[in-house]
Design a binder for these strands. Structure first.
Lengths: 125, 125, 125, 125
DNA sequence: GTGGTCTAGACCACT
DNA sequence: GTGGTCTAGACCACG
């Protein structure tokens, strides 16, 4: 499942898991109707509580990324390419909007912002 | 002081205050050695707890934006233009970093990010 | 047998089966002493576990809709018209009771409920 | 807060709480922006775990009935009369639709359904 | 085997 | 004081 946890991070563990899996679904790496691994298995592998995983799974279900079949497991909701693009657009806009506002507040012009973004993008690989 | 609070926001109130005042200092709107209003006054005007204001002030002092003179109040630290630029750089980097990472996670390339940033910058007029 | 399963539904599969077969018996479509198909056959056709079918059959037997002859299979209990009416009454009451309570809780009066019921009944053609 | 729990019921406790409070909000009994009692207080009064209450509160927040201000508490989302009417309509339709389908399945005509509904409505007071 | 619910108890951040 | 997060552990329903 390719989940990486950073226990030191300020963002809650369940959110880290949520955003990574939802990103994988949006990128199309997890096919529609494919099964997610059982929460107990994930918990064992990541060495964190079952409940924390469950909370991430619940959030994924709440936002429509997965669906649960009791007794069988959790499965990826099939999403059309357009839906995935919309979701990505929406998420990205939400993330960046606050940043742009803050940058403007600090007096940065567009070029300065793009410069920083470019630098950070390169660093992030 | 031009502080606007959104009590329902997810970002803590003290942080909202901190970022707005530090932005004003970095932009040079608050001159070096000028006095900040007493916390009780601010608390009354914003209708929030004195403790919250105090926490914002402490954070500002901790990061070197203001200094306290016991019995007299708090004052803006005089900062050279270069220092202000450095601080701005540092704050902006902190803001953007994790969101850029998230954008990469969602499969956006640099051009797409810059495109969105440009659009949002224009929208924020 | 005309059974339709929705695996993603919140109602357990065995209950879906139970209610559909019991409905057929109550409506008189399944004659008394007629044989139900072997559970293995049903399981194969519906592509679900034998255990699930068995649970549905057990529930049907428990409520008196069918009887088992060891080594021969399961058969529909012969029911008089009055008994069928009684059973129907009982089942319907069980279904509607808690939802009527919820409707009252939401502030609907009897006329409003009847209005909605009438509309939905027509829509369900 | 007028919450009544039935531990024997098959419906989870947190759902019982959720539906009762959401019903109160929809009926307009809980004014917009009024504070809900602290989860610990409710837990003590109902003699159930804090976590169960929290789950109910989370569901209420997820569906937009309440909002949380960290450090201060949870508050009722202000809803217009039309919105409340829409929500009620939507909930009631969802509840009754399944019932109507089942009743038709059992061979009841509209008059029979209305008769049962009327009887149950009277009994439920 | 799967997830769903409930429990008790701890630590943290914010006001 | 408030809610937010994480923990461990138990019991149940479903397949």
């Amino acid at each position: 499942m390719d989940i990486v946890i950073n226990p030191q991070s300020q963002t809650p563990i369940y959110q880290q898991i949520f955003s990574q899996i939802s990103a994988q679904i949006i990128r199309g790496e997890l096919a529609g109707d494919s099964a997610l691994p059982p929460i107990r298995t994930v918990a064992r592998e990541l060495k964190i509580s079952v409940i924390t995983i469950k909370k991430a799974w619940e959030e994924l279900e709440h936002q429509g990324f997965i669906y649960t079949v009791t007794g069988k497991g959790c499965f990826v909701t099939p999403l059309s390419l357009e839906k995935r693009a919309d979701l990505r657009e929406h998420l990205v806009t939400g993330l960046l909007q606050k940043d742009i506002v803050s940058c403007r507040e600090l007096g940065l012009d567009l070029d300065a912002i793009i410069g920083t973004v470019t630098k950070l993008y390169a660093d992030a690989e």
